[in-house]
Each structure stands twice: as structure tokens, then as C-alpha cells.
Simulated assay, not measured.
Amino acid sequence: MPAGNDRSQTRSADASHDSKTILVFGATGQQGGAVAEALRAAGWNVTALVRAPTSAKAQALADIGVALHQGDLSNGASIRAALAGVYGVFSVQPSSGQGAAYGVSDAQEIGYGKTVADLAVEAGVRHLVYTSVNAAGEEKTGMGHFDSKAEIEAHIRGLAVASTIIRPAGFMELLMLPGMGLDQGRFNFFLRPDQVGQTIAVRDIGRIVAAIFADPDTYVGRTFEIAGDRLTGKDLEKSLSRAAGRPIQYARFPDAVLESNPFLGHLAALFDDGRLAGNADIEGLQREFGPLLSFDAWLDGPGKPLLQRALEAGDADLALR
């Protein structure tokens, strides 16, 4: 990562954003919502492409000053209309890894990601920020919803548009999914007790993206991993026990579960080979973007209601997708 700097001196004049607009895709979701909020806090004009402007999540965006543009990733005309006159685009798409509720195939995700990028070029967008995943790279993972992002990355790099690609580690929010066992005094995950894995709070993804848009000279043309903390399985046990106020026993998912479920088994293998465990330069990121939330700080702050909900949840089927 570049060394820290005085942004008042290094911010490009072209990035002055008092009259510029960023179009945010996925703004009613976790990443897009965090990005929209951070951009608004930094003074940007923000437009969100939303299916249902009257929904509670869309109205929450409107309440913080986000302009709502009704549209759909499957409707190129609505995307084209939303892109008119915008300075920058934050691009994220639903994926098959998010489960059947989203009803998105890997091919559809790739199509959506490429379409957004192509139409951004057509519209003369000055800066495109695409969010991928830390496991993405030249070597295929064998997981469709990761390899789809690598294909979108490659497509974007081949276009005549200034772009930045970030590869977040696993979200802290995802650790609170049902089925992890917290309501039963345990926590199961992919890490071995002494194996290190990285994680990030979605709030910090938003902060990082806002900083990237504010300083294009530093970030255009770059692809890099982002994370806010690194933890072992034992660290998870300690942090969760402290935050829960009672013992939480950590264990990696049982071998029988990983062997019987190809999806989970493949994810575990990607943690073991390091690609999902993450390789972000966290110290460098903190010099560049300021303090990032540790898992403990997240549990005491934005993650507190999610933890409480997980502790009180009834017995649920494993729900990692």
C-alpha cells in the first residue's frame, strides 16, 4: 500500500466532488448501502439504482439524501438512464453465492457486471470502482460465484475507463448468519483453531470506497485486497465469549459436514490454501485509510445487534449462502 499522505495536498482537482454524482449499484444491500452512506457523509451527490423506490430500504437511502432511480440490472435502458451525467460508478452485483432467494446464476452475474461496465464507458464515466472478492485471481477457484468476479475484473481492465478494483475479505456481518451455533454456546466456521483468516466490516468498505473516489490519481488502475482484522479460530472463541458474556466454544465445521456438502467443503479448501483466508496488507490499509474496525470493536458497535440476534436464534439449518 502507498504510504499515508496529506489528502488536502494530493487530492486531484478533477475529483472535487461538490457537484459530482456517484451512481451506486446494490445500495439496498450491505456493501452498496455502506458505500452510499459513506459517500453522502463525504459530501458526494449519490444516486442509487433500485427496483422498488417505496421499499423501506430504499426510503432509508432517500432519508440520507440519496436520489433514487428506479431500474433493474436486467434492464439496460434503466441502467443507461441512471448513468446519464454521473462522474463515477460503484459496481456490485448479486451472485449465486448469496443463495436461492436472489435467483441469480453465475452467468447472470457476469452479464450484469459486464453490462454495467460497458454502459459506464458509453456514458463517459470518469471512475468505475468494482468490488470483487479476495479469492479472485488468475487461477480459477472452481467456485462459480468467485470465478464470475474474476471474469468481470478482466473485462473491466480491458475497457477504456479509469477503474479501481477492490477485493474484500469476508464480512464480519456474515459471521452472524444463522446456523453457526451461537444460540447453543458454540461457533463453527472454516478456520482451524490456529489458522489465521481476515475479515472486514462493511462500514469500512464504504469508507475505503469513498476515499478511493476522492483520490483517483492514487487508485486508478489498481487492484487490491481489503480487510480490517485478522483472527484465528481461537481468537473468534475469545472475542465472541467476551461479547456474549458467556463461554462460546469454537470448532471448525466437522469433517463429516464438509465432506457431505461439496459447497462447504470447497470453501474450506479455499481457506486452507489461503485464498479465502486473505492476504491484505492491513497495516498498510490503516496508514492509507485510517483506523479500521477490529472484530472486537465491531462486536461492541455495529455488530452488537447482529450478535444478540444470533445468540437468541432458534436452531437453524446451516445457512452460509
Rank of each mutant, 00 (worst) to 15 (best):
residue 3 A to L: 14
residue 3 A to V: 14
residue 8 S to D: 12
residue 11 R to W: 04
residue 12 S to N: 08
residue 25 F to W: 08
residue 43 G to M: 07
residue 45 N to V: 13
residue 47 T to G: 07
residue 59 Q to K: 15
residue 65 G to A: 12
residue 66 V to E: 06
residue 67 A to E: 15
residue 70 Q to C: 15
residue 83 L to C: 05
residue 85 G to E: 13
residue 86 V to S: 00
residue 88 G to R: 12
residue 88 G to V: 07
residue 94 P to A: 05
residue 97 G to H: 03
residue 97 G to K: 02
residue 99 G to P: 02
residue 101 A to R: 10
residue 101 A to C: 00
residue 105 S to R: 07
residue 108 Q to P: 02
residue 119 L to F: 11
residue 132 S to A: 04
residue 134 N to V: 14
residue 135 A to K: 06
residue 137 G to L: 05
residue 139 E to M: 14
residue 141 T to V: 04
residue 142 G to E: 11
residue 148 S to A: 15
residue 148 S to R: 10
residue 150 A to I: 07
residue 152 I to N: 03
residue 154 A to N: 14
residue 160 A to T: 07
residue 166 I to E: 09
residue 171 F to S: 00
residue 178 P to F: 13
residue 181 G to L: 02
residue 188 N to T: 12
residue 192 R to Q: 15
residue 192 R to I: 00
residue 192 R to M: 13
residue 195 Q to H: 13
residue 203 R to M: 10
residue 204 D to S: 10
residue 205 I to R: 05
residue 205 I to H: 13
residue 208 I to T: 10
residue 210 A to E: 01
residue 214 A to F: 09
residue 215 D to C: 05
residue 217 D to A: 13
residue 220 V to M: 12
residue 221 G to A: 06
residue 228 G to A: 14
residue 229 D to V: 02
residue 231 L to R: 13
residue 236 L to S: 08
residue 237 E to P: 01
residue 240 L to F: 14
residue 243 A to H: 01
residue 253 F to R: 03
residue 253 F to P: 01
residue 256 A to Y: 10
residue 259 E to R: 15
residue 262 P to I: 07
residue 262 P to E: 09
residue 262 P to A: 11
residue 265 G to A: 09
residue 276 L to V: 13
residue 282 I to T: 00
residue 282 I to H: 01
residue 285 L to M: 10
residue 289 F to A: 06
residue 292 L to H: 11
residue 295 F to Q: 01
residue 298 W to C: 12
residue 298 W to L: 11
residue 301 G to P: 10
residue 301 G to R: 00
residue 301 G to E: 08
residue 304 K to D: 06
residue 308 Q to S: 07
